[in-house]
Design a protein around this nucleic acid. Structure first.
Lengths: 228, 228
DNA sequence: CCGTAACTTAACGCGCCAGTAGGTTTCTCC
DNA sequence: GGAGAAACCTACTGGCGCGTTAAGTTACGG
C-alpha cells in the first residue's frame, strides 16, 4: 500500500535542539489557547501553528493538559519576573506599587495572548483554576505585607483580614484593568497604570492614615473635609 | 424489535408543568456548569441532576449553548434586579454606591454557583464572553455616569476615558472581591461591601476633589493636565 | 558516505458526548 | 369515556478529537 509521501519537496526541515522547539510549541499553544479556549483548541492546530508535527508536541510537552500547564507556568513566571526585576524594596510603598504596576501593565500590553491564557482561560477551567488561585494568593500576600509594613511604620495597625481583602481588591482592580488593556490595543499601559494608582492608591493612603468610611450618615464620606 | 421499556416499575414520575421543569433544569445547569465548566459539563449530568431525562432538557431549553445562555441571562437578570430594587437614585453618590454594593455582595453570597457561571465561566468561553462584556459595559457606564454627575456637581470635570477607566477599576475590584467571597463561605457579605467602600470610595472621593496621585520624581501620570 | 537520531506523514482506535427517534404514560376537556 | 395533547422515558448514533503507532525521510556527526 503505497502512501503518497511527498517525494520531491524542496522544503527542508531545520533540526533544532529540544529547548528551542519546546519554546516554539509553547508560543503556538499560548496563541491557540488564548484564541479558542482550552477545550475548543485542538492539538493538531497547535502543532500546525508551531510548524511541528503532532507527535513532536506529545514527545516534548506531553498531553494537552500538561501542555496547558506548561503555558500557564511560563507566562506566570515571565510576569512575576518582569515585576520583580523592577520593584526596588528599599523604596517607599507608593513607589514600589507604582513601579510594580507599570511593569505589570507593560507586560500585559506586550503579551496579550499570555494574559488571556492566564486570566480568561485558567480561571474557569477547574484543574487550572486552583493553581492560578495559588499564584494570585502569593501576590495578594505580598501586597498585604507591603500595606502592613506601611501601616506599622505609621505606628498603627490594621486587622489581618482587612489587609488581605484590601489587597485582594487592589489586585482585582489591576486584573480588571489589565483585561481592559488587552481589549484596547491603542491604550497606553503606563497611562493605565497611572489611572489605577489614582483610584486605588489615594484610597489606600486614606486607609493608612486611619480614615475609614462609615455607612451611617448620608453625607459624603470625605475624610479630612470640613465636616457637615 | 422490542425495546425493553420499563414495564412494571412501581416508580411513578411526577408530571410537572413546563415552567417549573425549566427552572429545575436551569438550577441543575447552573450547578453543573459552575462546578465543571461549560465544555466539561455533560448534558447527561445536567439532566440527571435535574431529575429529568435528556430529551426533556433539549425539548425545553434547546442545545447546550442555548442552555448556557439561558443560565447566563437568568442569573444576570436576577443580579441586576437585586441591585436595582435597592438603589435609590435620589440619594447621594456614596449612598447609592453603598446600597448597590451591599445588594451585590449579598446576591453573590447567596448565589455562589450563579456567580461562578457568570464570572468564571462566561468570561473565558468565547461565544458568551462578548455578551457578558456587554453587560459589564452597561454597569461601567452607569458607574461612570454617577461619577461624572458627582464631579460636575462640584463644578469640575474629568476626561471621559479617565472616568471610564476609574469605573472599570471599581467594577473590577468589586468582581474580584465577589470572587473572594464566593470562595469564603464564612465571610460576611456586608462586611465585604464595607471593605470595598473603604478602599475604593475613599480613593474616589479624593479624585472627585481633584486630588491626583503623582509619582515620586517623574512626570505626573494622568488626569488634569492643567499643569503640564 | 554510512548510521543514527531528529523529524515527518498518515493512519487508526477509542471514549465521550451532543443530539435524535420513537414509544409510553398521564392529564384535560368535551 | 375517549381523543388529543402534553409530559416523559429508553436507547441509540454519529462525529469529533485525543493520544498513539507504524513506516518512511532528511539532516548531521564522524
Amino acid at each position: 500500500m503505497r502512501s503518497l509521501t511527498r517525494v520531491s519537496t524542496t522544503r527542508t526541515f531545520k533540526r533544532l535542539p529540544r529547548e528551542i522547539r519546546e519554546q516554539q510549541v509553547l508560543d503556538a499553544a499560548v496563541r491557540v489557547f488564548s484564541h479558542h479556549g482550552f477545550h475548543t483548541a485542538s492539538m493538531d492546530e497547535i502543532a500546525e501553528v508551531a510548524g511541528v508535527s503532532k507527535p513532536m508536541v506529545y514527545a516534548y510537552l506531553g498531553t494537552k493538559e500538561e501542555l496547558f500547564i506548561a503555558c500557564l507556568r511560563r507566562e506566570a513566571t515571565r510576569l512575576m519576573e518582569a515585576i520583580a526585576d523592577v520593584v526596588d524594596p528599599t523604596l517607599g510603598l507608593s513607589d514600589q506599587l507604582w513601579s510594580g504596576l507599570r511593569a505589570f501593565f507593560a507586560f500585559v500590553g506586550a503579551h496579550r495572548d499570555g494574559w488571556a491564557v492566564l486570566y480568561r482561560q485558567a480561571r474557569g477551567q477547574e484543574p487550572f483554576a486552583a493553581e492560578l488561585a495559588a499564584m494570585r494568593r502569593r501576590i495578594v500576600d505580598v501586597i498585604a505585607d507591603m500595606l502592613d509594613r506601611a501601616v506599622r511604620a505609621e505606628g498603627r495597625q490594621i486587622h489581618g483580614i482587612d489587609l488581605e481583602v484590601s489587597a485582594y481588591a487592589l489586585v482585582g482592580a489591576g486584573e480588571s484593568l489589565a483585561d481592559w488593556l488587552a481589549d484596547h490595543p491603542d491604550a497606553d499601559p503606563d497611562k493605565t497604570a497611572g489611572r489605577l494608582m489614582n483610584v486605588a492608591w489615594l484610597g489606600a493612603a486614606q486607609l493608612l492614615r486611619g480614615d475609614v468610611w462609615a455607612p451611617g450618615g448620608s453625607e459624603p464620606p470625605v475624610t479630612s473635609r470640613d465636616a457637615a
